[in-house]
């Protein structure tokens, strides 16, 4: 019995480390990849694929200057944000249908961990007393209140299909459905989730991660007063978050090709599949970015409400299918 427990524990620890390693290493690469893909679509050459790592190492070598108005909260925020995001990464299934710690929590914890990170970011942005940071913070919170219900509802619809709020259970359920998966409910929910995911990542048409003009920045605007290592931590955390949402979307859109067991070659194919899926989702996101222009701040509401409505329709259809009512 003890032996079994030990093996279980060992396996868990191993999975945790693989997951953390994967997410930490992959996230700068995926961000650069998106930049590269976008550049290629727009006819530019784009940055080298290793640019993310170069950036990070640069940040960690720079001097750290902070505003003299700030309190210790400003200094601990990057670490709180980073640990919350990293904890979230243990909840998201990547190359294998189980997550390292299935007992940790589900979609609700995921959303609230992002919320925790956002709370500290928004608070830290108010610390230096700069007008630009404050504006970004306020806008970020406004976007968050629009995104959160959409994200939750679309995840809820998917969770209701699988009857569990734990992400591994949902993904597992999706992966065993085969061709029967593509019901109207599923398609609509995934579309709503895609919209919410793009908004949560802070990309066009909701926010532009590449802008460098203070008045238009939302997510990046909050880091204005950060520099050096602290900025590096903040940016790395937002890359990790981006990767998490991308993996979530990838696993919901293509719930196939997971490693079934822990043997090495199978794990390897799982990883390959995972990478391919994420790249495809990146391509979708980048395509959307290239085709659509950024919308005005207060028009964001309309898009997100539309997405909310899509989720509700998905919900209604799923229920009518269950009970044979409504006739949809």
């Amino acid at each position: 019995m003890v032996e079994v427990m030990n093996i279980f524990l060992l396996q868990t620890v191993l999975l945790v480390f693989i997951q953390l390693f994967l997410i930490l290493i992959l996230s700068p690469f995926i961000n650069t990849l998106m930049k590269k893909l976008k550049a290629l679509l727009q006819g530019r050459i784009g940055p080298p694929l290793m640019q993310g790592y170069y950036d990070l190492s640069k940040y960690f070598q720079k001097e750290t200057v902070v505003s003299n108005q700030t309190s210790p909260i400003f200094l601990i925020t990057p670490f709180v944000v980073f640990s919350a995001t990293l904890l979230a990464s243990l909840l998201v299934p990547t190359y294998i249908t189980i997550t390292p710690l299935f007992i940790l929590g589900g979609i609700i914890l995921l959303v609230y961990l992002f919320g925790l990170a956002r709370f500290f970011m928004a608070q830290a942005a108010m610390e230096p007393g700069s007008g630009f940071c404050g504006m970004a913070s306020s806008r970020e919170m406004m976007l968050a209140m629009l995104i959160e219900p959409v994200l939750l509802l679309s995840l809820f619809v998917l969770a209701l299909m699988a009857k569990s709020t734990n992400l591994p259970n949902i993904v597992n359920w999706l992966s065993i459905q085969g061709i029967h998966l593509f019901t109207p409910t599923y398609v609509l929910a995934v579309i709503a989730l895609l919209i919410a995911g793009i908004a949560e990542m802070g990309r066009v048409p909701f926010d532009n991660p590449e802008t460098h003009y203070e008045l238009t920045m939302i997510h990046e605007g909050m880091f204005l007063e950060y520099s050096g290592k602290l900025l590096g931590m903040m940016i790395w955390a937002s890359w990790i978050k981006q990767l998490l949402i991308l993996s979530l979307l990838a696993n919901f859109i293509f719930p196939y090709g997971y490693s079934a067991s822990a043997s090495l070659p199978i794990l390897f194919t799982g990883l390959l599949f995972y990478f391919a899926k994420v790249v495809i989702v990146c391509l979708i996101v980048v395509l959307v970015e290239t085709v659509i222009a950024k919308v005005r701040l207060f028009r964001v509401k309309d898009i997100l409400i539309a997405s909310f409505v899509i989720s509700i329709i998905a919900l209604v259809i799923s229920i009518s299918k269950d009970t044979g009512g409504l006739g949809l």
Partner: peptide
């Protein structure tokens, strides 16, 4: 549930606003 998430997000915004305007800067 979605609306509860909505209130949660507004609540966070409200308290960021309160905390930052009372204690920060």
């Amino acid at each position: 549930g979605a609306l509860l998430g909505f209130t949660g997000a507004i609540c966070a915004a409200t308290f960021v606003k309160a905390f930052s305007s009372i204690f920060s800067a």
